[in-house]
């Protein structure tokens, strides 16, 4: 390695002035990291989604938009978001202790809408949009052996595709079934909460196309965000609260039968 006089003086001065840790940080200050970007501050965001089951009409536009926006493989199995239809038969007055088994379907992940199915007498039915819950205490990130998936300081669970080794531990660990192995790259894949959109001031693709506002994205660290009003006005619940995952997809009208 050869240094000219100017370079030697510059590097020498920097070494003398900055301690070891600070000189490491210098490289990132020069490059400009997201937390330094003027338009997006990691520390002032904590993303969550409000999902209103009483407003979802099962049109599947969200599933379609997600596939297009994020270049997700077309097969239903590889879906970052999907819509389920629940049909819950009534309790039988003749045998009230019998187990109630909900009928759940999601043809092509709900992308093409839902065909009507034969009615079950006395049953109630509704649509449940699903996506990554972006858990604050996410089980999936805790099992990653290489530090490829993580919950960022702004509450979004992401995957470093260049670092993932495709071991599938996270896919098994997610209690909501929100992850899959991308067959093209053999790396884990999941909803990014449209991180490339929300950090540029847009909402997610699914929220953008939802015709009834059944999905609303919100920043919980912003006291003026409308999501606070929605959470106040509705009796919300998260999926599988017993697992204490800190899920941040808040559902209005969530029936206890939904898993």
């Amino acid at each position: 390695m050869s240094l000219d006089r100017r370079e030697f003086l510059a590097k020498g001065t920097m070494f003398l002035l900055l301690t070891g840790a600070a000189s490491r940080a210098w490289a990132f200050i020069e490059q400009g990291r997201p937390q330094d970007a003027p338009d997006y501050d990691l520390a002032t965001h904590w993303w969550a989604m409000f999902i209103d089951i009483e407003k979802c009409i099962g049109c599947g536009r969200c599933v379609d938009a997600c596939k297009v926006e994020n270049d997700v493989p077309p097969e239903a199995y590889y879906s970052r978001t999907w819509v389920e239809r629940y049909i819950i038969p009534p309790i039988d007055p003749a045998d009230p202790m019998a187990e109630i088994l909900p009928i759940v379907d999601s043809p092509n992940a709900g992308r093409d809408g839902f065909p009507e199915v034969p009615a079950v007498a006395g049953a109630k039915s509704f649509f449940v949009p699903k996506l990554c819950n972006h858990c604050a205490e996410s089980p999936c990130t805790q099992v990653c052996p290489v530090g490829a998936t993580f919950r960022g300081p702004d509450g979004v669970v992401l995957i470093d595709k260049t670092w993932c080794v495709g071991c599938r531990y996270c896919i098994q660990a997610c209690p909501y079934g929100c992850r899959f192995l991308d067959p093209r790259t053999n790396t884990a894949d999941k909803c990014t909460l449209c991180y490339h959109r929300i950090t540029r001031g847009l909402t997610t693709a699914c929220c953008e196309v939802c015709p009834t506002q059944a999905r609303v994205l919100g920043n919980l660290r912003n006291p003026d965000d409308p999501i606070h009003q929605l959470l106040k006005e509705h009796n919300v619940q998260v999926l599988k609260p017993n697992l204490a995952t800190g899920a941040k997809a808040y559902y209005n009208g969530l029936d206890g039968a939904v898993r």
Binding site: R33, P34, L42, A148, F150, R151, G152, L158, Y195, T199
Partner: peptide, 12 residues
């Protein structure tokens, strides 16, 4: 955190 900071910009 336990991740590569640059990935945030990659995804953005």
């Amino acid at each position: 955190g336990h991740f590569r900071t640059g990935v945030l910009q990659d995804i953005r």
